[in-house]
Design a binder for these strands. Structure first.
Lengths: 188, 188
DNA sequence: CGCCGAGTTGAACTGAATCAAGAAACGTGG
DNA sequence: CCACGTTTCTTGATTCAGTTCAACTCGGCG
Protein backbone atom coordinates (compact mmCIF):
# COMPACT_ATOMS: atom_id res chain seq x y z
CA UNK A 1 0.00 0.00 0.00
CA UNK A 2 2.91 2.32 0.63
CA UNK A 3 3.57 2.27 -3.13
CA UNK A 4 0.50 4.45 -3.52
CA UNK A 5 1.89 7.13 -1.27
CA UNK A 6 5.16 6.96 -3.15
CA UNK A 7 3.29 7.43 -6.42
CA UNK A 8 1.20 10.32 -5.10
CA UNK A 9 4.29 12.00 -3.72
CA UNK A 10 5.80 12.14 -7.20
CA UNK A 11 3.28 15.01 -7.50
CA UNK A 12 3.58 16.68 -4.09
CA UNK A 13 4.74 15.68 -0.63
CA UNK A 14 1.83 14.70 1.61
CA UNK A 15 1.40 15.30 5.30
CA UNK A 16 0.91 12.17 7.34
CA UNK A 17 -2.54 13.39 8.28
CA UNK A 18 -3.56 13.69 4.61
CA UNK A 19 -2.18 10.27 3.85
CA UNK A 20 -3.97 8.76 6.85
CA UNK A 21 -7.22 10.31 5.73
CA UNK A 22 -6.76 9.09 2.17
CA UNK A 23 -5.60 5.60 3.08
CA UNK A 24 -8.47 5.11 5.52
CA UNK A 25 -10.79 5.17 2.49
CA UNK A 26 -8.90 2.51 0.55
CA UNK A 27 -10.35 -0.90 -0.04
CA UNK A 28 -8.34 -3.89 -1.28
CA UNK A 29 -9.87 -6.07 -4.00
CA UNK A 30 -8.51 -8.98 -6.04
CA UNK A 31 -9.63 -10.01 -9.52
CA UNK A 32 -8.95 -13.28 -11.28
CA UNK A 33 -7.56 -13.43 -14.80
CA UNK A 34 -10.27 -12.46 -17.34
CA UNK A 35 -12.46 -10.96 -14.62
CA UNK A 36 -13.90 -7.50 -15.34
CA UNK A 37 -13.14 -4.55 -13.09
CA UNK A 38 -15.62 -2.49 -15.04
CA UNK A 39 -18.30 -3.58 -17.44
CA UNK A 40 -19.68 -1.54 -20.33
CA UNK A 41 -22.87 0.22 -19.21
CA UNK A 42 -21.80 0.45 -15.58
CA UNK A 43 -20.91 3.78 -14.06
CA UNK A 44 -17.36 3.72 -12.75
CA UNK A 45 -17.34 4.21 -8.99
CA UNK A 46 -13.65 3.69 -8.27
CA UNK A 47 -10.20 5.03 -8.79
CA UNK A 48 -7.92 2.01 -8.36
CA UNK A 49 -4.20 1.62 -7.80
CA UNK A 50 -2.71 -1.59 -9.18
CA UNK A 51 -0.65 -3.37 -6.52
CA UNK A 52 -0.09 -6.44 -8.66
CA UNK A 53 -1.23 -7.53 -12.10
CA UNK A 54 -1.88 -6.21 -15.59
CA UNK A 55 -5.08 -4.84 -17.09
CA UNK A 56 -6.43 -3.82 -20.44
CA UNK A 57 -9.05 -1.25 -21.37
CA UNK A 58 -11.13 -1.97 -24.45
CA UNK A 59 -14.34 -1.40 -26.33
CA UNK A 60 -15.97 -4.81 -26.71
CA UNK A 61 -16.90 -5.53 -30.34
CA UNK A 62 -18.68 -8.38 -32.09
CA UNK A 63 -15.62 -9.48 -34.00
CA UNK A 64 -12.51 -7.85 -32.56
CA UNK A 65 -12.32 -5.76 -29.40
CA UNK A 66 -10.78 -2.32 -29.71
CA UNK A 67 -8.05 -2.30 -27.07
CA UNK A 68 -6.84 1.21 -26.34
CA UNK A 69 -4.76 0.87 -23.18
CA UNK A 70 -2.78 -1.33 -20.84
CA UNK A 71 -2.15 -0.64 -17.18
CA UNK A 72 0.57 -2.24 -15.06
CA UNK A 73 1.67 -2.61 -11.49
CA UNK A 74 2.05 0.66 -9.57
CA UNK A 75 -0.23 2.70 -11.80
CA UNK A 76 -3.71 4.07 -11.35
CA UNK A 77 -6.60 2.78 -13.41
CA UNK A 78 -10.22 3.77 -13.79
CA UNK A 79 -12.91 4.14 -16.41
CA UNK A 80 -11.94 7.80 -16.22
CA UNK A 81 -14.53 9.17 -18.61
CA UNK A 82 -17.28 7.50 -16.63
CA UNK A 83 -15.64 8.19 -13.28
CA UNK A 84 -15.25 11.89 -13.98
CA UNK A 85 -18.64 12.48 -15.58
CA UNK A 86 -20.58 9.78 -13.72
CA UNK A 87 -22.34 8.50 -16.82
CA UNK A 88 -22.29 4.82 -17.87
CA UNK A 89 -18.99 3.66 -19.29
CA UNK A 90 -18.71 2.74 -22.97
CA UNK A 91 -15.73 0.45 -22.50
CA UNK A 92 -14.54 -2.33 -20.23
CA UNK A 93 -11.56 -3.04 -18.02
CA UNK A 94 -10.34 -6.62 -17.79
CA UNK A 95 -7.65 -8.30 -15.70
CA UNK A 96 -5.07 -9.92 -17.98
CA UNK A 97 -3.58 -11.71 -14.97
CA UNK A 98 -4.60 -12.13 -11.35
CA UNK A 99 -4.75 -8.55 -10.14
CA UNK A 100 -4.86 -6.83 -6.76
CA UNK A 101 -5.91 -3.20 -6.49
CA UNK A 102 -6.46 -0.67 -3.72
CA UNK A 103 -9.41 1.46 -4.63
CA UNK A 104 -11.27 4.53 -3.45
CA UNK A 105 -14.88 5.38 -4.27
CA UNK A 106 -15.99 8.47 -6.18
CA UNK A 107 -17.76 9.87 -3.12
CA UNK A 108 -14.74 9.30 -0.86
CA UNK A 109 -12.40 10.93 -3.36
CA UNK A 110 -14.66 13.96 -3.49
CA UNK A 111 -14.50 14.12 0.30
CA UNK A 112 -10.74 14.19 -0.01
CA UNK A 113 -10.92 17.01 -2.54
CA UNK A 114 -13.15 18.93 -0.16
CA UNK A 115 -11.43 18.17 3.13
CA UNK A 116 -7.71 18.08 2.41
CA UNK A 117 -5.48 20.87 1.22
CA UNK A 118 -3.39 18.69 -1.00
CA UNK A 119 -6.15 16.69 -2.69
CA UNK A 120 -6.93 19.05 -5.53
CA UNK A 121 -3.27 19.76 -6.15
CA UNK A 122 -2.42 16.08 -6.52
CA UNK A 123 -5.60 15.55 -8.53
CA UNK A 124 -4.66 18.39 -10.84
CA UNK A 125 -1.16 17.10 -11.41
CA UNK A 126 -2.41 13.60 -11.99
CA UNK A 127 -4.97 14.80 -14.55
CA UNK A 128 -2.25 16.84 -16.21
CA UNK A 129 -0.08 13.74 -16.46
CA UNK A 130 -2.93 11.73 -17.97
CA UNK A 131 -3.46 14.52 -20.48
CA UNK A 132 0.19 14.53 -21.51
CA UNK A 133 0.11 10.76 -22.01
CA UNK A 134 -2.95 11.01 -24.25
CA UNK A 135 -1.34 13.88 -26.17
CA UNK A 136 1.71 11.83 -27.00
CA UNK A 137 -0.52 8.94 -28.00
CA UNK A 138 -2.44 11.22 -30.36
CA UNK A 139 0.82 12.27 -31.97
CA UNK A 140 1.94 8.67 -32.32
CA UNK A 141 -1.33 7.75 -34.04
CA UNK A 142 -1.11 10.70 -36.40
CA UNK A 143 2.50 10.72 -37.47
CA UNK A 144 3.95 7.26 -37.01
CA UNK A 145 3.40 4.14 -39.10
CA UNK A 146 2.11 0.95 -37.47
CA UNK A 147 5.62 -0.49 -37.70
CA UNK A 148 7.12 2.47 -35.85
CA UNK A 149 4.45 2.28 -33.16
CA UNK A 150 5.22 -1.39 -32.67
CA UNK A 151 8.94 -0.76 -32.42
CA UNK A 152 8.45 2.07 -29.93
CA UNK A 153 6.21 -0.08 -27.80
CA UNK A 154 8.76 -2.84 -27.95
CA UNK A 155 11.64 -0.65 -26.83
CA UNK A 156 9.60 1.08 -24.10
CA UNK A 157 8.07 -2.08 -22.66
CA UNK A 158 9.74 -5.26 -23.86
CA UNK A 159 7.92 -7.31 -21.22
CA UNK A 160 4.58 -6.20 -22.65
CA UNK A 161 5.11 -8.20 -25.80
CA UNK A 162 5.81 -11.31 -23.78
CA UNK A 163 2.93 -11.07 -21.33
CA UNK A 164 0.12 -9.78 -23.51
CA UNK A 165 -1.62 -11.57 -26.39
CA UNK A 166 -0.50 -10.05 -29.68
CA UNK A 167 -4.05 -9.47 -30.86
CA UNK A 168 -4.50 -6.88 -28.09
CA UNK A 169 -1.23 -5.22 -28.97
CA UNK A 170 -2.25 -5.14 -32.63
CA UNK A 171 -5.48 -3.41 -31.72
CA UNK A 172 -3.64 -0.96 -29.49
CA UNK A 173 -1.34 0.16 -32.30
CA UNK A 174 -4.33 0.39 -34.63
CA UNK A 175 -3.93 -2.61 -36.94
CA UNK A 176 -5.21 -6.19 -37.32
CA UNK A 177 -3.43 -9.20 -35.81
CA UNK A 178 -2.54 -10.34 -39.35
CA UNK A 179 -0.82 -7.05 -40.13
CA UNK A 180 1.08 -7.18 -36.84
CA UNK A 181 2.22 -10.70 -37.60
CA UNK A 182 3.68 -9.53 -40.91
CA UNK A 183 5.39 -6.57 -39.26
CA UNK A 184 6.97 -8.86 -36.67
CA UNK A 185 8.29 -11.12 -39.39
CA UNK A 186 10.03 -8.16 -41.04
CA UNK A 187 11.46 -6.77 -37.81
CA UNK A 188 12.70 -9.74 -35.86
CA UNK B 1 -12.70 39.56 -20.03
CA UNK B 2 -15.78 38.48 -18.10
CA UNK B 3 -16.06 35.52 -20.50
CA UNK B 4 -13.07 34.01 -18.75
CA UNK B 5 -14.80 34.06 -15.39
CA UNK B 6 -17.87 32.52 -17.01
CA UNK B 7 -15.71 29.75 -18.46
CA UNK B 8 -13.90 29.11 -15.17
CA UNK B 9 -17.17 29.01 -13.31
CA UNK B 10 -18.35 26.11 -15.48
CA UNK B 11 -15.95 24.23 -13.18
CA UNK B 12 -16.65 25.86 -9.80
CA UNK B 13 -18.10 29.14 -8.58
CA UNK B 14 -15.38 31.65 -7.68
CA UNK B 15 -15.32 34.18 -4.90
CA UNK B 16 -14.90 37.74 -6.08
CA UNK B 17 -11.60 37.89 -4.21
CA UNK B 18 -10.25 34.88 -6.12
CA UNK B 19 -11.39 36.34 -9.41
CA UNK B 20 -9.84 39.71 -8.58
CA UNK B 21 -6.57 38.01 -7.75
CA UNK B 22 -6.62 35.95 -10.93
CA UNK B 23 -7.68 38.75 -13.23
CA UNK B 24 -5.06 41.13 -11.83
CA UNK B 25 -2.45 38.82 -13.41
CA UNK B 26 -4.02 38.85 -16.87
CA UNK B 27 -2.37 40.57 -19.77
CA UNK B 28 -4.09 41.33 -23.07
CA UNK B 29 -2.21 40.60 -26.31
CA UNK B 30 -3.23 40.74 -29.96
CA UNK B 31 -1.74 38.70 -32.79
CA UNK B 32 -2.08 39.31 -36.52
CA UNK B 33 -3.11 36.59 -38.93
CA UNK B 34 -0.22 34.11 -39.46
CA UNK B 35 1.61 35.41 -36.39
CA UNK B 36 2.98 32.80 -33.98
CA UNK B 37 1.85 32.70 -30.34
CA UNK B 38 4.42 30.03 -29.66
CA UNK B 39 7.37 28.93 -31.72
CA UNK B 40 8.94 25.48 -31.77
CA UNK B 41 11.89 25.42 -29.40
CA UNK B 42 10.47 28.08 -27.09
CA UNK B 43 9.29 27.17 -23.62
CA UNK B 44 5.62 28.07 -23.23
CA UNK B 45 5.22 30.69 -20.55
CA UNK B 46 1.50 31.42 -20.88
CA UNK B 47 -1.94 30.01 -20.48
CA UNK B 48 -4.12 32.11 -22.81
CA UNK B 49 -7.85 32.61 -23.13
CA UNK B 50 -9.03 33.44 -26.64
CA UNK B 51 -11.26 36.51 -26.62
CA UNK B 52 -11.46 36.71 -30.39
CA UNK B 53 -9.94 34.73 -33.23
CA UNK B 54 -9.01 31.21 -34.28
CA UNK B 55 -5.77 29.34 -33.82
CA UNK B 56 -4.13 26.17 -34.94
CA UNK B 57 -1.57 23.96 -33.22
CA UNK B 58 0.87 22.10 -35.45
CA UNK B 59 4.21 20.43 -35.85
CA UNK B 60 6.04 22.31 -38.59
CA UNK B 61 7.38 19.94 -41.28
CA UNK B 62 9.46 20.39 -44.39
CA UNK B 63 6.67 19.44 -46.74
CA UNK B 64 3.35 19.41 -44.90
CA UNK B 65 2.71 20.60 -41.35
CA UNK B 66 1.03 18.17 -39.01
CA UNK B 67 -1.93 20.09 -37.62
CA UNK B 68 -3.39 18.44 -34.54
CA UNK B 69 -5.75 21.02 -33.09
CA UNK B 70 -7.84 24.13 -33.57
CA UNK B 71 -8.86 26.55 -30.84
CA UNK B 72 -11.68 29.07 -31.06
CA UNK B 73 -13.09 32.05 -29.27
CA UNK B 74 -13.82 31.52 -25.58
CA UNK B 75 -11.45 28.61 -25.11
CA UNK B 76 -8.09 28.30 -23.42
CA UNK B 77 -4.96 27.61 -25.42
CA UNK B 78 -1.37 26.87 -24.53
CA UNK B 79 1.52 24.72 -25.58
CA UNK B 80 0.38 22.57 -22.69
CA UNK B 81 3.14 19.98 -22.82
CA UNK B 82 5.75 22.68 -22.64
CA UNK B 83 3.77 24.83 -20.21
CA UNK B 84 3.27 21.97 -17.77
CA UNK B 85 6.75 20.50 -17.97
CA UNK B 86 8.65 23.73 -18.74
CA UNK B 87 10.74 22.15 -21.47
CA UNK B 88 10.98 23.59 -25.02
CA UNK B 89 7.89 23.04 -27.12
CA UNK B 90 8.02 20.71 -30.12
CA UNK B 91 5.12 22.33 -31.92
CA UNK B 92 3.84 25.79 -32.83
CA UNK B 93 0.70 27.84 -32.34
CA UNK B 94 -0.38 30.17 -35.14
CA UNK B 95 -3.17 32.70 -35.41
CA UNK B 96 -5.45 31.80 -38.34
CA UNK B 97 -7.14 35.18 -38.05
CA UNK B 98 -6.47 38.34 -36.06
CA UNK B 99 -6.59 37.07 -32.49
CA UNK B 100 -6.88 38.67 -29.08
CA UNK B 101 -6.04 36.70 -25.95
CA UNK B 102 -5.88 37.34 -22.22
CA UNK B 103 -2.96 35.45 -20.81
CA UNK B 104 -1.36 34.58 -17.49
CA UNK B 105 2.25 33.57 -16.97
CA UNK B 106 3.40 30.23 -15.62
CA UNK B 107 4.79 31.86 -12.47
CA UNK B 108 1.60 33.82 -11.82
CA UNK B 109 -0.56 30.75 -12.30
CA UNK B 110 1.56 28.89 -9.78
CA UNK B 111 1.01 31.75 -7.35
CA UNK B 112 -2.68 31.28 -7.84
CA UNK B 113 -2.40 27.56 -7.17
CA UNK B 114 -0.49 28.36 -4.00
CA UNK B 115 -2.51 31.30 -2.73
CA UNK B 116 -6.14 30.63 -3.61
CA UNK B 117 -8.35 27.87 -2.36
CA UNK B 118 -10.13 27.38 -5.65
CA UNK B 119 -7.10 27.41 -7.97
CA UNK B 120 -6.16 23.76 -7.79
CA UNK B 121 -9.78 22.67 -7.98
CA UNK B 122 -10.41 24.61 -11.16
CA UNK B 123 -7.04 23.52 -12.50
CA UNK B 124 -7.88 19.91 -11.78
CA UNK B 125 -11.24 20.09 -13.49
CA UNK B 126 -9.77 21.86 -16.47
CA UNK B 127 -7.04 19.22 -16.83
CA UNK B 128 -9.69 16.53 -16.53
CA UNK B 129 -11.65 18.15 -19.33
CA UNK B 130 -8.57 18.35 -21.55
CA UNK B 131 -7.92 14.68 -20.83
CA UNK B 132 -11.45 13.68 -21.83
CA UNK B 133 -11.17 15.62 -25.08
CA UNK B 134 -7.90 13.86 -25.96
CA UNK B 135 -9.45 10.51 -25.04
CA UNK B 136 -12.31 10.96 -27.46
CA UNK B 137 -9.85 12.05 -30.12
CA UNK B 138 -7.82 8.89 -29.56
CA UNK B 139 -10.95 6.82 -30.04
CA UNK B 140 -11.84 8.70 -33.21
CA UNK B 141 -8.36 8.08 -34.64
CA UNK B 142 -8.49 4.38 -33.78
CA UNK B 143 -11.97 3.35 -34.78
CA UNK B 144 -13.27 5.77 -37.39
CA UNK B 145 -12.39 6.10 -41.06
CA UNK B 146 -11.13 9.40 -42.44
CA UNK B 147 -14.54 9.92 -44.04
CA UNK B 148 -16.34 9.47 -40.73
CA UNK B 149 -13.95 11.81 -38.96
CA UNK B 150 -14.60 14.44 -41.63
CA UNK B 151 -18.35 14.06 -41.34
CA UNK B 152 -18.24 14.28 -37.54
CA UNK B 153 -16.13 17.40 -37.71
CA UNK B 154 -18.54 18.84 -40.22
CA UNK B 155 -21.60 18.19 -38.07
CA UNK B 156 -19.91 19.39 -34.86
CA UNK B 157 -18.39 22.54 -36.30
CA UNK B 158 -19.81 23.49 -39.69
CA UNK B 159 -18.17 26.91 -39.49
CA UNK B 160 -14.73 25.27 -39.19
CA UNK B 161 -14.89 24.01 -42.74
CA UNK B 162 -15.66 27.48 -44.01
CA UNK B 163 -13.06 29.42 -42.06
CA UNK B 164 -10.09 27.09 -42.11
CA UNK B 165 -7.99 26.05 -45.13
CA UNK B 166 -8.83 22.47 -46.09
CA UNK B 167 -5.21 21.38 -45.99
CA UNK B 168 -5.16 21.97 -42.24
CA UNK B 169 -8.40 20.07 -41.77
CA UNK B 170 -7.02 17.21 -43.86
CA UNK B 171 -3.98 17.01 -41.64
CA UNK B 172 -6.15 17.15 -38.51
CA UNK B 173 -8.18 14.14 -39.58
CA UNK B 174 -5.00 12.33 -40.56
CA UNK B 175 -5.03 12.34 -44.37
CA UNK B 176 -3.57 14.30 -47.31
CA UNK B 177 -5.38 17.26 -48.92
CA UNK B 178 -5.88 15.12 -52.05
CA UNK B 179 -7.65 12.40 -50.09
CA UNK B 180 -9.86 14.98 -48.36
CA UNK B 181 -10.75 16.50 -51.70
CA UNK B 182 -11.96 13.10 -52.92
CA UNK B 183 -13.94 12.49 -49.73
CA UNK B 184 -15.65 15.85 -50.10
CA UNK B 185 -16.62 15.05 -53.66
CA UNK B 186 -18.30 11.84 -52.50
CA UNK B 187 -20.08 13.45 -49.58
CA UNK B 188 -21.40 16.75 -50.85
C1' DC C 1 -1.62 41.51 -65.53
C1' DG C 2 0.91 37.78 -63.79
C1' DC C 3 2.08 35.17 -59.84
C1' DC C 4 1.37 32.04 -56.10
C1' DG C 5 -0.88 29.16 -52.89
C1' DA C 6 -5.08 26.32 -52.38
C1' DG C 7 -7.85 23.02 -54.20
C1' DT C 8 -9.02 19.43 -57.56
C1' DT C 9 -8.31 15.55 -60.57
C1' DG C 10 -5.89 11.53 -62.65
C1' DA C 11 -2.74 7.41 -62.56
C1' DA C 12 0.31 4.38 -60.36
C1' DC C 13 1.66 2.53 -56.10
C1' DT C 14 1.54 0.88 -51.16
C1' DG C 15 0.25 -0.42 -46.46
C1' DA C 16 -3.17 -2.54 -44.27
C1' DA C 17 -7.96 -4.89 -44.30
C1' DT C 18 -10.38 -8.79 -45.42
C1' DC C 19 -11.29 -13.55 -46.37
C1' DA C 20 -9.65 -18.07 -45.83
C1' DA C 21 -6.93 -21.78 -44.23
C1' DG C 22 -3.42 -24.02 -41.61
C1' DA C 23 -0.05 -24.35 -37.47
C1' DA C 24 1.08 -23.57 -32.77
C1' DA C 25 -0.07 -22.75 -27.96
C1' DC C 26 -3.16 -23.14 -24.19
C1' DG C 27 -6.42 -24.92 -20.84
C1' DT C 28 -9.46 -28.21 -19.17
C1' DG C 29 -11.29 -32.62 -18.09
C1' DG C 30 -10.58 -37.32 -18.08
C1' DC D 1 -0.04 -36.35 -17.79
C1' DC D 2 -2.05 -36.80 -22.00
C1' DA D 3 -5.96 -35.85 -25.45
C1' DC D 4 -8.94 -32.76 -27.15
C1' DG D 5 -11.05 -28.54 -28.30
C1' DT D 6 -10.44 -23.71 -28.39
C1' DT D 7 -7.95 -19.74 -29.01
C1' DT D 8 -3.95 -17.40 -30.89
C1' DC D 9 -0.78 -16.74 -34.39
C1' DT D 10 0.85 -17.16 -39.04
C1' DT D 11 0.66 -17.21 -44.02
C1' DG D 12 -1.36 -16.47 -48.69
C1' DA D 13 -4.46 -14.10 -52.07
C1' DT D 14 -7.33 -10.41 -53.01
C1' DT D 15 -9.31 -5.88 -52.28
C1' DC D 16 -9.41 -1.20 -50.78
C1' DA D 17 -8.34 3.31 -48.70
C1' DG D 18 -5.10 6.51 -48.88
C1' DT D 19 -0.30 8.14 -50.61
C1' DT D 20 2.57 9.98 -53.99
C1' DC D 21 3.67 12.35 -58.08
C1' DA D 22 2.12 15.26 -61.56
C1' DA D 23 -0.76 18.38 -64.05
C1' DC D 24 -4.32 21.65 -64.16
C1' DT D 25 -7.92 25.28 -62.36
C1' DC D 26 -9.29 28.88 -59.60
C1' DG D 27 -9.15 33.05 -56.70
C1' DG D 28 -6.70 36.63 -54.32
C1' DC D 29 -3.12 39.95 -54.26
C1' DG D 30 1.05 42.55 -55.40
Amino acid sequence: MHQIRKYLETFSPMRNSDWDYYSSKLQCVTFQKKELLLKKGQTENFLSFVEEGTLRMYFPKIENDLTFGFVFKNQFISGYDSFLTQVPCTYQIEALSKTTVWRISHADLNDIYTNTEIGNEIGRKNAERLFLIKSSRELSLLELTAKERYQNLFSERPQLIKEIPLKYIASYIGITPQALSRIRRQVS
